[in-house]
């Protein structure tokens, strides 16, 4: 069983894609970031990626790093992340943690899985963990019935698509462009090609697409060929522009726009 697969199946039954919003915990501070997540849920986000701040976010662009640096300096850690997970759950959406590997390894892989399950989290997305290195994580997520989301990229071979899908539970994350996170003007062709390759090789798994979506039109475009539209930097931008209650509210407004986008036919 998989909480993420269930919520994605429900969206599909409604003939739409799910909206997945990312926000790191702790920017501008822990309560405001949690308020923003709750506003995103109210705006229509189905799944919230609760981001763990990390000092060396090698896969992220300038917007996310700008938000995460102060959170790292303020000492935001997994205890705060679990609080955000519980708050998202209480608000009625599905929380999934997004984290680089070292903070989880340092906390203890088994302990993290147990505490995440206790907080009501569905699982975790691990952008710098490939299945070959994930033995401990796979075991811990099996014990606690958690989802584990690995990434695929346009450069992934067919063999890697198959092995990564086999290791994943919930969905696979298709990184739609070669590059780091950030808002982009156009949805890349590479995304459609990658998703159709995954569908052909592994029709059973849900595929969500991320990197670069910032508005309802792009969300509609990506929704047309994916099970879930992942939006990160655009939400972070709301709080960077206005690091306060107004920014949290703006994240909610953006979620409502994007939620309309993923429902367009």
């Amino acid at each position: 069983m998989s909480v993420l697969a269930d919520v994605l199946a429900r969206s599909r039954a409604e003939h739409r894609s799910a909206l997945i919003g990312y926000l790191p915990v702790g920017y501008p501070d822990v309560p405001t970031s949690i308020d923003a997540m709750i506003a995103m849920v109210a705006g229509g986000a189905d799944i919230i990626e609760v981001g763990v701040p990390y000092s060396d976010p090698g896969m992220d662009g300038p917007a996310i790093q700008a938000a995460v640096d102060p959170a790292v300096k303020a000492g935001v850690g997994l205890r705060d992340v679990f609080a955000a997970v519980s708050a998202v759950r209480a608000a009625g959406a599905v929380p999934v943690v997004m984290s680089y590997w070292n903070p989880l390894e340092k906390y203890g892989v088994g302990r993290f899985a147990a505490d995440l399950a206790a907080a009501g989290g569905a699982g975790a997305i691990t952008p710098d963990l490939i299945p070959e290195e994930a033995g401990q994580w796979i075991a811990a997520t099996d014990v606690h019935d958690l989802d584990r989301v690995f990434l695929l990229a346009p450069s992934s071979t067919d063999a890697r698509i198959l092995s990564t899908v086999a290791a994943s539970r919930g969905f696979v994350y298709a990184a739609s462009t070669m590059g780091v996170t950030g808002v982009r003007a156009a949805v890349s062709d590479a995304a459609t090609t990658l998703v159709s390759r995954i569908r052909r090789l592994a029709p059973e798994i849900a595929v969500c697409v991320g990197l670069g979506v910032s508005n309802a039109d792009q969300a509609a475009e990506v929704a047309a060929f994916s099970d879930g539209v992942i939006v990160g930097s655009a939400f972070v931008r709301c709080l960077l522009d206005s690091p306060d209650a107004a920014g949290a509210k703006a994240a909610g407004t953006l979620a409502a726009e994007l939620a309309e986008g993923v429902r367009r036919r």
């Binding site: 090698g58 896969m59 590997w101 952008p127 710098d128 963990l129 490939i130 070959e132 290195e133 690995f150 990434l151 695929l152 990229a153 346009p154 450069s155 992934s156 071979t157 890697r160 990564t164 990184a175 070669m178 590059g179």
Partner: peptide, 12 residues
């Protein structure tokens, strides 16, 4: 050792 990298770099 090992490889703790985004999937996008594995092919390279």
């Amino acid at each position: 050792g090992g490889r703790f990298v985004p999937e996008a770099l594995v092919a390279a």
